[in-house]
Amino acid sequence: MWFLYEATGNEKWKTEADKFSRFLTPLSVNKANDHDLGFQILNSFGNGFRLTGNNEYKQIILKTADTLATLFNPKVGTIQSWPYNKMGGHNTIIDNMMNLELLFWASKNGGSHKLYEIAVRHAETTMQNHFRSDFTSYHVIIYNPETGKKIKGQTAQGYSDKSMWARGQAWGIYGFTMVYRETKDPKFLDFAHKIARVYLDKLPADLIPYWDFNAPNIPNEPKDASAAAIVASALLELSTFTENPTLKKEYETKAVLMLKELSRNYLSKEANSALLLHSTGHKPAGSEIDCSIVYADYYYLEALLRLKEL
């Protein structure tokens, strides 16, 4: 809704965006139940503050960043993702990269510098432990909470512990691109290029991934429009940091082709509360298969706005 307000200037969307953002206010004062606070608060109140300058929004964002930081384990070097289901240790999922932007934002807008340090440490630890030698991502890493030692890599929403879950790789590409933007440390940019390369090289012809690149019944497997939208948005930003003209052109061209394919064949044509169809949430649990999912719409709109700006 904030993106629709930004795109159209229509006050209707601003009113609705404010109303629905405010439902999330308790997250800024309650104990952290999971890592998703960055998604929930920066994508709502963060966009609201960016577009309106409302100081009330800013205070909510800053409080929530402090709440997210309570899940950080300095012995491990990451923010715990699911405190309610430890899975045999301190768990961190690749999705958590997306929540670091909240900490970066807060550290620059009145919050503690420690928030910046936590975000950088989390990104460094994830870069070291969350990826296989071929730069494909695990979904979950389990650490010993006392020693910080990595115990194992596994999946929750992917096909197997050894497979490349499409949205997980997408979170990584977007996340490390964002971390480079916030730190300007070239190691994060280099890593974003490497994990983008393996994703792009394994895509099917229409550039919309199956829910897992190693799912056993491709091409008779569900697609994941959400992963495509996330990567399209990430590639548009990554292209702006890319000096190699051939690579820059590839990122821009493929991002546009992804958005064209989503717009042609994945947009809902009927009355629907969502924009995009055909995302896959959690196939192993039989949940959200061939569905509309809110974050698919969010990153689709973000990508369109980034494309417009470019």
Rank of each mutant, 00 (worst) to 15 (best):
K31H: 00
A271H: 09
T8A: 08
L257S: 14
N99T: 03
K254P: 14
G111W: 00
M258N: 11
E117Q: 12
Q80T: 07
S263Y: 09
V29W: 00
L304F: 06
K269S: 15
R264I: 12
Q169V: 10
G175D: 08
D66V: 01
S233N: 15
G9W: 07
F39T: 15
N10P: 00
K248Q: 15
E221M: 08
D185N: 08
N129S: 13
R167T: 05
T70E: 09
I60V: 13
S226R: 11
N30K: 04
A303S: 10
H90G: 13
K14D: 00
M98H: 11
G172Q: 10
W2T: 00
M97V: 09
P26A: 03
S239T: 05
S233K: 02
A106D: 01
S292H: 13
Q80I: 11
N272V: 15
Y159N: 06
N214P: 03
T15A: 08
Q157C: 07
E182C: 08
K260T: 13
S263N: 14
L62F: 01
A123C: 08
G46W: 00
G53V: 07
W2N: 05
T67Q: 10
Y199A: 14
K31G: 00
I41R: 04
L37A: 05
G9K: 10
E56I: 07
V76Q: 11
M1P: 03
E221H: 03
S28I: 08
Q128S: 09
A205D: 14
W13A: 11
F131R: 06
G148M: 04
T67E: 07
Y300H: 09
M178Q: 08
H35D: 01
N43E: 12
D201F: 06
M258R: 02
H278P: 03
T280L: 08
K202T: 10
L42M: 09
D18Q: 10
L62Q: 03
K248S: 13
K308V: 08
I208D: 10
Q80F: 02
K19I: 01
K19D: 05
P145A: 11
Y5K: 05
S279G: 15
A65T: 07
W105T: 02
G89K: 13
N55E: 11
L235M: 14
I79W: 01
N144L: 13
D34C: 03
F23I: 04
K14G: 06
E261N: 15
A255Y: 07
L301V: 10
P219V: 10
T183E: 12
T246V: 13
I230H: 04
L235T: 05
T52F: 00
K269M: 14
L42I: 15
